[in-house]
C-alpha cells in the first residue's frame, strides 16, 4: 500500500500531532502548521491525529495511488482532481489503484492536507512522525517529499471503514488573504502601547514552518539588546533589532532572546499556518480571561465533531 509522489511543489512534508513536553531539551513542537485542518482531514478518514498526513505548501502537487484508499483533502482549497475528475474538499473520497491526485495552487491560505485512512508511514521520533526539517527528524528521512518518493500507507483501523463523511459546514473555515488573530500582550510590549492593535501588518516572503516575518510599524523597544534567553512557544510575535516582527510557528526554537511583544492566543494559533506572503494580519487584543473564554467556545464547537481534539 503506497502513494507515489510525482510532484511535491515548493515544500511538502509528513505532519501529524506536535511533540509535546520536550522543549526543555531543545526539541520543538513541529506537527501540522494548521493542526485544525489536519485534524478535520484525519476525522474524515477515521484516523487519530497521531497519523501523518501530507502537508502541502502552496502546491502544485501530484501523486499516484498504488492501492485502493480512502482519502480526504482539507486546509487551503485549490483545484483538485482524481483521474482528471474534479473532487471536493472536506469529504471522504475513495481512490483506486493507479489513480492520480492533482492539486493546484490555493487562492487563499497556504497549506493543504492530504490524509489517507491508516496514515502515511513516517519515521517516528519522540512519539510523533511529524517532520522537523532543520534537524532532519521524523517524516521521510527528516526531509521534504520529492518526486519519486513511495510513501507507505499504514493499515487502516476497522472502525468506520465504510463511513463517507463530510465536515459539518460550521467547521469549514474559509480562508481569505486577511487574518485577524486574537492575541494577548507579550511580556516585552511597552505599557500603554495602542498602535499595534490598530494596524494591518503584511506577511513578507520570509515565511516558513519556523515563522513568518511581518512588515509594518512596530513599537520602538527601548532595549533592543538581547534579553536573557527564555522559553518561547509558537504564537509568539518577536521583535528582532531590525524592526520587523517575526511570528513563531511550530518549528520555532524552544528558547529565544528577542523582545516578545504579543502572543497569538491558543484559540487562533491554528490559523497562523495559513498565512502566506502578502497577506495582511491584524491582532485583536484580548485579556487572558477573555482568551480562555474564546478558547472554550471554539473548543466546544470542535468537540461535537472531534471529541479528542484540543486547541
Amino acid at each position: 500500500m503506497s502513494l507515489e509522489i510525482l510532484q511535491a511543489g515548493p515544500q511538502s512534508t509528513l505532519q501529524a500531532t506536535s511533540r509535546n513536553g520536550m522543549r526543555h531539551i531543545g526539541i520543538p513542537a513541529s506537527g501540522a502548521a494548521d493542526p485544525l485542518s489536519h485534524a478535520l482531514g484525519a476525522r474524515l478518514v477515521g484516523n487519530d491525529t497521531s497519523c501523518a498526513s501530507i502537508e502541502i505548501t502552496y502546491g502544485p502537487f501530484e501523486a499516484t495511488f498504488r492501492c485502493n484508499a480512502r482519502i480526504s483533502l482539507t486546509g487551503a482549497i485549490s483545484e483538485a482532481s482524481v483521474s482528471d475528475q474534479p473532487v471536493a474538499f472536506h469529504e471522504t473520497l475513495t481512490v483506486g489503484t493507479g489513480q492520480t491526485l492533482k492539486l493546484g495552487h490555493p487562492t487563499a491560505g497556504l497549506r493543504t492536507y492530504v490524509s489517507v485512512a491508516g496514515g502515511f508511514e513516517g519515521e517516528v521520533f519522540a512519539s510523533s512522525p511529524s517532520t522537523y526539517l532543520p534537524a532532519h527528524l521524523g517524516g521521510v528521512d527528516g526531509r521534504a517529499l520529492k518526486q519519486g518518493d513511495m510513501l507507505a500507507i499504514s493499515e487502516a483501523s476497522a472502525k468506520g471503514a465504510d463511513e463517507m463523511l463530510k465536515t459539518p459546514s460550521e467547521l469549514r473555515l474559509p480562508f481569505t488573504n486577511a487574518f485577524a488573530l486574537r492575541a494577548t500582550p507579550g511580556p516585552d510590549l511597552p505599557e500603554n502601547e495602542i498602535e499595534i492593535w490598530e494596524q494591518n501588518f503584511s506577511a513578507t516572503r520570509r515565511a516558513s514552518r519556523i515563522g513568518i516575518e511581518l512588515d509594518g510599524n512596530f513599537p520602538a523597544i527601548e532595549s533592543n539588546r538581547n534579553l536573557p534567553s527564555a522559553g518561547i512557544f509558537p504564537g509568539a510575535l518577536q521583535l528582532p533589532p531590525q524592526g520587523r516582527g517575526f511570528l513563531l510557528l511550530p518549528d520555532c526554537q524552544t528558547t529565544g532572546g528577542y523582545p516578545h511583544i504579543l502572543q497569538v492566543n491558543r484559540s487562533d494559533r491554528h490559523l497562523m499556518g495559513q498565512i502566506r506572503p502578502g497577506d495582511s494580519v491584524m491582532f485583536l487584543k484580548r485579556a487572558p480571561a477573555e482568551a480562555a473564554v474564546d478558547q472554550k467556545e471554539k473548543q466546544e464547537l470542535l468537540s461535537s465533531w472531534m471529541p479528542e481534539f484540543r486547541l
Partner: peptide, 22 residues
C-alpha cells in the same frame, strides 16, 4: 504543565487554560 522550560534566568511554563484557569 504542557511544558516546563528553563531559560538563562527564568523558568517558563505552558498550560491549557481550558483545563487550568490562569
Amino acid at each position: 504543565w504542557d511544558e516546563v522550560v528553563v531559560g538563562r534566568e527564568s523558568v517558563t511554563v505552558q498550560y491549557d487554560p481550558c483545563e487550568t484557569p490562569p
